[in-house]
Amino acid sequence: MQFEFDQTEPIYQQIADQLEDMIFTGLLKEGEQAPSTTQLSQELHINPATVLKGMRQLVDRGLLEKHRGLGMFVAAGAQAKIVETRKDAFYENYIKSLLEEAGKLGITEEHLIELIKRGYQDGNIKG
Protein backbone atom coordinates (compact mmCIF):
# COMPACT_ATOMS: atom_id res chain seq x y z
CA MET A 1 0.00 0.00 0.00
CA GLN A 2 1.54 3.27 -1.14
CA PHE A 3 0.79 6.64 0.47
CA GLU A 4 2.23 9.94 -0.65
CA PHE A 5 2.11 13.08 1.47
CA ASP A 6 2.57 16.75 0.69
CA GLN A 7 2.55 19.91 2.76
CA THR A 8 -0.75 21.34 1.48
CA GLU A 9 -3.20 19.53 3.79
CA PRO A 10 -3.10 17.96 7.24
CA ILE A 11 -1.78 14.39 7.18
CA TYR A 12 -5.03 12.95 8.59
CA GLN A 13 -6.94 14.49 5.66
CA GLN A 14 -4.45 13.07 3.18
CA ILE A 15 -4.85 9.62 4.74
CA ALA A 16 -8.64 9.89 4.44
CA ASP A 17 -8.38 11.09 0.83
CA GLN A 18 -5.97 8.34 -0.20
CA LEU A 19 -8.02 5.59 1.47
CA GLU A 20 -11.09 7.00 -0.29
CA ASP A 21 -9.23 6.82 -3.61
CA MET A 22 -8.33 3.19 -2.88
CA ILE A 23 -12.01 2.41 -2.35
CA PHE A 24 -13.00 4.40 -5.45
CA THR A 25 -10.52 2.60 -7.69
CA GLY A 26 -11.33 -0.82 -6.21
CA LEU A 27 -7.94 -1.32 -4.57
CA LEU A 28 -9.93 -1.70 -1.34
CA LYS A 29 -13.13 -3.59 -2.11
CA GLU A 30 -16.45 -3.47 -0.29
CA GLY A 31 -16.46 -5.89 2.62
CA GLU A 32 -12.65 -6.03 2.66
CA GLN A 33 -10.70 -5.15 5.78
CA ALA A 34 -8.96 -1.79 5.68
CA PRO A 35 -5.39 -1.55 6.94
CA SER A 36 -5.29 -1.16 10.72
CA THR A 37 -4.44 2.09 12.43
CA THR A 38 -1.38 0.43 13.97
CA GLN A 39 -0.23 -0.99 10.64
CA LEU A 40 -0.54 2.37 8.87
CA SER A 41 1.07 4.36 11.67
CA GLN A 42 4.05 1.99 11.75
CA GLU A 43 4.46 1.84 7.96
CA LEU A 44 4.09 5.60 7.54
CA HIS A 45 5.96 6.57 10.74
CA ILE A 46 3.16 8.81 11.98
CA ASN A 47 1.15 9.02 15.17
CA PRO A 48 -1.68 6.44 15.43
CA ALA A 49 -4.04 9.23 16.53
CA THR A 50 -3.40 10.99 13.21
CA VAL A 51 -4.26 7.84 11.26
CA LEU A 52 -7.35 7.26 13.39
CA LYS A 53 -8.57 10.82 12.79
CA GLY A 54 -8.40 10.26 9.02
CA MET A 55 -10.15 6.90 9.26
CA ARG A 56 -12.89 8.36 11.48
CA GLN A 57 -13.76 10.75 8.66
CA LEU A 58 -14.46 7.75 6.44
CA VAL A 59 -16.50 6.07 9.19
CA ASP A 60 -18.53 9.27 9.62
CA ARG A 61 -19.20 9.34 5.87
CA GLY A 62 -20.31 5.70 5.87
CA LEU A 63 -17.36 4.46 3.81
CA LEU A 64 -15.74 2.39 6.55
CA GLU A 65 -17.39 0.37 9.31
CA LYS A 66 -15.93 -0.60 12.66
CA HIS A 67 -16.25 -4.26 13.55
CA ARG A 68 -15.47 -4.50 17.27
CA GLY A 69 -12.41 -6.62 17.85
CA LEU A 70 -11.79 -7.13 14.14
CA GLY A 71 -10.94 -3.71 12.73
CA MET A 72 -12.32 -1.48 10.00
CA PHE A 73 -13.95 -2.75 6.86
CA VAL A 74 -15.06 -1.08 3.65
CA ALA A 75 -18.81 -0.55 3.93
CA ALA A 76 -21.30 -1.95 1.44
CA GLY A 77 -22.13 0.74 -1.11
CA ALA A 78 -19.02 2.77 -0.27
CA GLN A 79 -17.82 3.00 -3.86
CA ALA A 80 -21.25 4.19 -5.08
CA LYS A 81 -21.31 6.85 -2.32
CA ILE A 82 -17.93 8.11 -3.46
CA VAL A 83 -19.07 8.24 -7.08
CA GLU A 84 -22.16 10.28 -6.13
CA THR A 85 -20.13 12.64 -3.95
CA ARG A 86 -17.61 13.16 -6.73
CA LYS A 87 -20.36 13.76 -9.30
CA ASP A 88 -21.82 16.44 -7.03
CA ALA A 89 -18.38 18.00 -6.60
CA PHE A 90 -17.82 17.85 -10.37
CA TYR A 91 -21.01 19.84 -10.89
CA GLU A 92 -20.09 22.39 -8.22
CA ASN A 93 -16.44 22.75 -9.21
CA TYR A 94 -16.61 22.52 -13.00
CA ILE A 95 -20.06 22.66 -14.52
CA LYS A 96 -21.19 25.83 -12.74
CA SER A 97 -18.07 27.73 -13.80
CA LEU A 98 -18.33 26.28 -17.32
CA LEU A 99 -21.89 27.58 -17.61
CA GLU A 100 -20.91 30.95 -16.19
CA GLU A 101 -18.10 31.34 -18.73
CA ALA A 102 -20.34 30.09 -21.55
CA GLY A 103 -22.87 32.75 -20.59
CA LYS A 104 -20.21 35.46 -20.69
CA LEU A 105 -19.18 34.29 -24.16
CA GLY A 106 -22.76 34.12 -25.40
CA ILE A 107 -22.54 30.37 -26.00
CA THR A 108 -26.02 28.88 -26.22
CA GLU A 109 -27.03 25.61 -24.60
CA GLU A 110 -27.15 23.95 -28.01
CA HIS A 111 -23.67 25.18 -28.95
CA LEU A 112 -22.27 24.11 -25.59
CA ILE A 113 -23.72 20.62 -26.10
CA GLU A 114 -22.11 20.53 -29.56
CA LEU A 115 -18.75 21.50 -28.04
CA ILE A 116 -19.05 18.76 -25.43
CA LYS A 117 -19.95 16.20 -28.10
CA ARG A 118 -16.95 17.36 -30.13
CA GLY A 119 -14.75 16.74 -27.10
CA TYR A 120 -16.00 13.16 -26.91
CA GLN A 121 -15.56 12.66 -30.67
CA ASP A 122 -12.02 14.04 -30.61
CA GLY A 123 -11.14 11.35 -28.09
CA ASN A 124 -10.50 13.82 -25.28
CA ILE A 125 -12.83 11.94 -22.96
CA LYS A 126 -12.80 8.26 -22.19
CA GLY A 127 -16.37 7.25 -21.50
Score class of each variant (00 low, 15 high):
N47C: 05
V51P: 00
L64T: 00
I125K: 01
G71T: 03
R118S: 04
G54K: 04
A16L: 04
D21Y: 07
L52P: 12
G26C: 03
G71Y: 11
T85R: 15
K66P: 05
V74L: 04
K126N: 04
I113W: 00
A102D: 10
G119D: 09
F24P: 04
L40S: 01
V51T: 11
L115N: 07
S41M: 13
L115H: 00
L52T: 15
L98M: 11
D60Y: 01
M55W: 03
A49Y: 13
V74Y: 07
D122Y: 06
P35L: 02
F90V: 15
A80L: 07
G123T: 09
R118Q: 10
L58Q: 13
A80Y: 13
L105W: 06
G69Q: 03
N124Y: 11
L52A: 09
K81W: 15
E43V: 11
Y91C: 08
H67I: 02
I82A: 09
Q42F: 03
Q79N: 10
D88Y: 15
L63I: 13
E65N: 14
K126E: 12
E43S: 09
E9L: 12
E20A: 02
K104R: 02
R86Q: 08
F24Y: 14
S97P: 15
E110M: 03
E109H: 13
N47A: 06
E100H: 06
I11E: 11
T50K: 08
D6G: 08
Q14P: 11
Q18H: 09
K81R: 14
K53P: 01
A89G: 04
A80H: 05
V83G: 08
R56K: 15
D6K: 05
A89K: 05
I23L: 14
K29E: 09
D122F: 10
Q39N: 10
L27F: 00
A102G: 04
H111F: 15
Q121E: 14
E110N: 12
D88K: 15
K53Y: 00
T8A: 05
F24V: 07
I113A: 05
Q2F: 02
Q13H: 10
L52N: 04
M55F: 03
D17C: 00
G31S: 00
L98W: 09
L115S: 00
G62C: 01
F24A: 11
A76D: 14
L105T: 13
G123Y: 10
T38S: 07
L105D: 13
N47Q: 10
N124A: 09
G71D: 08
Q18C: 04
Q13L: 08
T108V: 00
V59F: 06
G62V: 06
R118D: 14
G71K: 06
K53R: 02
E110H: 09
G106Y: 07
R86S: 13
L28R: 12
K66N: 10
H111L: 10
E100S: 01
Y91P: 08
Q18I: 04
Q13Y: 11
I23W: 15
M22C: 08
N93D: 06
Y120K: 05
N93I: 02
M22A: 14
L98S: 05
R68S: 12
Q2M: 02
Y120P: 01
D88S: 11
N124T: 12
V51L: 13
E20R: 01
Q13A: 09
L40C: 06
